[in-house]
Nucleic acid binder design. Structure first.
Lengths: 266, 266
DNA sequence: AACTGTGAAGAACTTCACAGCA
DNA sequence: TGCTGTGAAGTTCTTCACAGTT
């Protein structure tokens, strides 16, 4: 029986596309904002704009969850917040440990979004004995020696790695051996994990490099803004640089099955 | 004219797929490690393993850059490092400003990977007058009032936003007006920018929520590890939990055109 | 009349499998 | 012989466009 809950509603269930799953948190955030403003319903168009996607995509995404809207009207904000939260598993509280309490680890520990969104920082762990006991974000830092007991005592299944690259794989191995099955990796390394363990990574330098790639392209195509501009037929309108028709922040993308390490000093 | 360089090699050039661009930094990192160990050549298989992707994908990716390998042998490490660096625009030095010097901003400022990878922190900017002049990572924090002059004086085209969500859009607008055309956003907000400006975002809570989604699925399918396990026919092997055949850290994925806000307290 | 839900078309990405070259 | 480079097939994701519902 496990932790009860979620015995699929019979209709709909299997396989929500990964791309859709990755957008659900965005919708949830936009919906939460609407909810706080006591907005009762939204159309796919409005919500899509707030989330920065297009409405067809949003409707398609929601169609994988079920038929939660009302034709001619839109979606009930509160109801959708609940359904998406449930789908994401946020109706329960996930204890999380953060390993590596340097600048970044401390920043993550202080991140206010945890509690409000279904996560709870169960412990902060660092290998430096000098850190032990020191309070960070209201929690005493615990030493790495205690890692295994902390994981099992708190039933932690999600771990965040914010250590230097060199320590990441070792920390990862210990987390996994202790029972963690989901890891968010901020260290700039490819982690090797057993089947059944999920890893996601966040990597500053990779993101910057992707931006640099596009930045270089821009420079190559426009030369100096004002000089021989608009060479290759790329930009649709006129001036491409500053202020012009605003557009929902699209940003680049990230390949599926993607692999991206993370922030953190070497 | 312009900044010289990159006048496409005639052959190959237009349109490297986004998914490929997103992986180039991974390859580059793996190659750099090999280079430091003075390894002269690698096969697609070896490099792919190091980068955590499969070799067919890697070869296809490289094929968009040109034919830089030698059949029967592999790729010359140094040569590939150069080619990828050039493609990513890392043979030049990009000045970057970081706005919002809280815990996260400081962590980013201290990130060692900057200098080594084609980026240089030109300035740290914060709205708090009390921070002004305080040294962080060896640089004095400058006040937001100076934002515009800092951007133009240093020819900055890439900005990093690490402010609270509430300030992000405003900071973004100022950066863009001052000439920044690429933004890395760590604030949990969808930024609206003019055409021609790229935005990428990094968001802790979104990553955690995606992990929670999969974690929930695991719980639902395996119940308690050891009890009525392997219900729905998902896992191929046997036990899915801890230690078992290691696999290159795949991690989840991220939708193209994706939109993901970022870390930072509310 | 307004807006959702979705089949179908299209685009992007991945994987296969093998021809071709060193 | 060994490994790259790449057409072609397969898969996933996105967008279109409209039937269906309130």
């Amino acid at each position: 029986m496990a932790t009860g809950r979620t015995h699929r509603p019979a209709t709909r269930s299997r396989g929500i596309p990964e791309a859709t799953v990755a957008r659900l948190p965005l919708y949830l955030r936009a919906l939460t904002a609407l909810s706080e403003r006591s907005v009762p319903t939204v159309s796919s168009e409005e919500l899509a704009t707030a989330a920065g996607v297009n409405s067809a995509k949003l409707r398609k995404d929601f169609s994988y969850l079920g038929s939660y809207g009302t034709r001619g009207v839109g979606y009930d904000v509160e109801y959708l917040v609940y359904q998406i939260s449930r789908e994401l598993g946020l109706t329960q509280d996930w204890p999380v440990v953060i390993v590596g309490i340097g600048n970044l680890g401390a920043a993550l520990a202080n991140y206010g979004g945890f509690a409000s969104r279904g996560f709870r920082v169960a412990a902060l762990i660092d290998a430096d004995p000098a850190m032990a006991g020191k309070p960070v974000a209201g929690l005493p830092v615990r030493h790495t020696d205690e890692l295994e007991s902390i994981i099992s005592d708190n039933g932690v299944s999600i771990g965040v790695i914010a250590t230097p690259a060199g320590a990441a794989q070792q920390v990862c191995d210990r987390l996994v051996a202790a029972g963690v099955t989901s890891i968010l990796n901020f260290a700039p390394t490819v982690l090797v994990v057993p089947d059944g363990v999920d890893v996601r990574k966040v990597d500053l330098s990779i993101e910057l490099q992707i931006l640099a790639f596009h930045e270089q392209r821009k420079a190559g195509e426009e030369t100096v803004p004002g000089t021989a501009a608009a060479a290759a037929g790329a930009a649709a309108g006129s001036g491409a640089t500053a202020s012009a028709r605003p557009r929902a922040a699209t940003g680049g993308r990230k390949g599926p099955d993607g692999d991206v390490p993370a922030v953190m000093p070497a």
